[in-house]
Structures are given as structure tokens and as C-alpha cells.
Amino acid sequence: MLNLNMVSKIYSGRKGTIAALDSVSMHIESGEFIGVQGPSGSGKTTLLLAAGGLLIPDRGTVEISGNNLYSMPPEKRAIFRASEIGFVFQQFHLISYLTVLDNILVPSLAIPGSDASERARELLHRFNMTDRMHHTPSELSTGERQRTALARALLNKPKLILADEPTGNLDRENADIVLLAFDEFTKSGGAVLMVTHDETISHYAHRTCKLISGKIINNGE
């Protein structure tokens, strides 16, 4: 499913260069839920962005379902991302002026489909948000916001979910809902790569990797 091969990313700044990713290789199969743990600044977000086709690595390749992401033209890569990858963020990143239903439907802008609305309602029902569909994000609790973000990530039926600290702002109950959803997603054949500080990830993840200073120290195998 996801194959990172010797991926390196170096950020250059006024204070010198920082190797955010240093020859990272990782392989995730369909149905796998992989957790990546590491301290702040270890390169977790960079790993996720590179895996999601949003950050061109300086070296190495990223393949999803056998497609080399960065050999595609940007426009094609965007469409590929919309159809194959779902993103979930710690800050939820819902669009403030859209209702819950509209937020879930946003990915259909990239891949228009006649069944998007129906699918969005299914997801609302699945995450117990039907009665909130016409509310805006400011009217939701943090747990509801993350469930909305989760539904949004699943709208286009992706094969891979990339999650950046999705439980970081949640209480235990809501964190479990999110993790359970990921678990269900992998059971249905999807793959999850989740970076987190959450220690309970080991209860749900099939493998947990350690990332320190841009290097995978322990790939959890």
C-alpha cells in the first residue's frame, strides 16, 4: 500500500540545516494500522506530509499502491491524493463557515461524485452526528469536531489515512472513538499511518515505530 524508500528531507534556514527525515524507509500493507511515536521536532509531521504527496522529499521515493507520488505532475498528484488518501489533523482544520455536512462534502470538490451527499449522510450516521449536520464547527464539541474531520477523511473512500496527532486534543472517550474508527477502517482493508504521543496507540496499532531526529529507530516489527 504505502512504501517509503530512503526518504530524506532537509530544511535549510538561517541557523543552518535540519534533517527532518534522514533516509526513512517504511512499508505499510493494506489492513495495517501503524503508529509513529517520537518527541516534538523529530520529523513526524514531515513524514506524514511526504507520505501524503504534499512535501517533495530531497531524496527517496514514496509509492502508494505502486504509484510513485512525486513522479506525477502536481495536478494529477492532487487528484490521486483526493481519491487515495484521507487526512486527519490534531487541530481538525474544519472550515469555519461550512456546516458539518458541507465540511464532510469538501473532498467531493476534488472528485465530484453523484453519491457524495448520500455517502456524507451515511458517515454522519456512522459517527452519530446526524442531528448536528447543519451546525457549524464553532457549535460542536472537540470530539464532534474530530468525528466530523474523520468523516471528511473517509468521504472519498480512501485506501490510506494519514493522521497527525488526531487524539491530541481529545478526552479518552473521544480518542477511543477515533482509534476505534481507524481500527474498523483497517479491518475493511484500509491502511492507517498515525503519528502521535498517545501511548494507548499500542492497543489499536499493529506496529508502533519510533522516530527520533528524522530516523526510524524502531520500526515495530
Partner: peptide, 16 residues
Amino acid sequence: KTEIGILRALGLRSSQ
């Protein structure tokens, strides 16, 4: 700015 980043992450092309 953030909204643009999210939309791009969700697969919207720069032309969109």
C-alpha cells in the same frame, strides 16, 4: 491561508 492548505491537502488542485 489555513483553509487553502486544508483544501489542497484534501486534493483540490491549484486551478480550483
